[in-house]
Design a protein around this nucleic acid. Structure first.
Lengths: 227, 227
DNA sequence: GTAATAGTGTCTGTAAGACAGTATTGG
DNA sequence: CCAATACTGTCTTACAGACACTATTAC
């Protein structure tokens, strides 16, 4: 028998998270083509050609659709390939999780015209194209889990940051309040998580805080336990 | 411009783990077709048709190539789609992790003629087709991590098991020795992890042990910490 | 001074790891 | 009796969470 394997369309979708006003936001775009024209969706698109690497495609969409030329964290999240998920045919999407620090402007004006930051809480209850609500939920859950055991939280911060800024990351992603004093101690006890960045200080209101930067360690020990 | 998205071949590969002689084993097959004809490889294959679900394809390969009609654990592991990984063209593989209890016979004689259980330690140092060594390494690492926080270990056991059998799972997967007395206490303190299965007992040598079965809980609290 | 945030110390409960000791089987 | 494994208890150390307290800024 001359059976030939079927071919599928390969897409990448992006869950891009950031902090704005101490709340977790995700980047959504307004779809400019069918299907789901005009609906909110995660940024993403098809592989450009047969030879494009999947991670490269994710980075390209990050630049094209979100105007982000570089992010401190990008990882594959999972595969979403249910047969009926896209009416254009059999589309298999490799979802990615990206994390970026708060940006000066929500989005640049390239192809990313319809892009905007949306609070995750609202995005999760809104109508999203395809199975993007599930992808978003999985991405947020992945971020929540990784905050515990990895240094992912620093990807939400600028190069230097205060401990309370780092605490805001944990509070926003986990959606809970933390005791600043215990957080201070725990973050310092996680060896290699953050390192002091000179004796510099910064000011908002109240006593100025020391500045830190991300340490060399990727896996936290002891971990930052979620209550 | 009339650009059309490229299509790729979609495959599933399987990291099937089990315990044999208190050591972690993985199921490998001998490839019967080019490329890598005759080489050792993970079981797997292409999507059957445009409408086959990815998980269904994984289950089908599990039955066809491994003779396993049902396993207590099956989950997607990741996507492996590097452009050059398969000379037949652009192949994107969705790797899966399956866990099965020790089986009466290594493999049935259906299509799984060339299938055999290989100690993971040896498989990781052997020559494997494609990028299967990396997939295997990732699968083992996933299993190791999940033992800590989930009830995955019970998937390696029969429906009822003793605590020392469960300990053998942890020791084999983590590749370390554990103190039986501390293990006993920890496993019992993880609420809902295992539940007593009547006052039955079983015998090997020494004092007979109580039998347990998997509890309702999927996430362990407190976790089984890896030393 | 007050308000606000940064940072330190102290207490209590829980859990991990080391390991002594008892219990129950077979030979 | 001994060997072997199952199970219980006890001790020490580490960390989580609660929270009193001091420090340093702006006003």
């Amino acid at each position: 028998m001359e059976w030939t394997a079927p071919r599928v369309l390969l897409a990448v979708d992006l869950v891009i998270l950031t902090l704005r006003d101490a709340r977790l936001h995700v980047l959504l775009v307004e779809r400019g083509v069918e299907p789901h024209l005009g609906a909110s969706a995660l940024p993403g698109g098809f592989l450009r050609d047969e030879h494009e690497d999947i991670t490269s495609a994710a980075r390209r969409e990050l630049a094209e659709e979100a105007g982000l030329s570089d992010v401190p964290h990008l990882e594959a999240l999972g595969v979403y390939g249910e047969p009926g998920r896209d009416p254009r045919g059999r589309v298999v999407s490799v979802a990615h999780l990206a994390v970026a620090p708060r940006l000066p402007e929500p989005v640049a004006g390239t192809d990313a015209a319809g892009a905007r930051w949306v609070p995750v809480e609202r995005a999760l209850t809104a109508e999203l194209a395809f199975d993007h609500r599930r992808i978003l939920a999985d991405g947020v859950e992945r971020a929540r889990a990784k905050l515990e055991h990895s240094a992912l939280a620093t990807a939400f911060c600028d190069e230097t940051f205060t401990i309370s800024e780092l605490q805001q990351v944990y509070e926003a992603v986990w959606g809970i309040r933390l005791d600043p004093r215990n957080f201070y101690r725990k973050v310092q006890n996680a060896r290699g998580f953050i390192v002091a960045d000179g004796p510099m200080r910064r000011t908002d209101t109240g006593r100025p805080a020391r500045l830190f930067r991300a340490g060399p360690v990727r896996v936290l020990n002891p971990p930052m336990s979620r209550p």
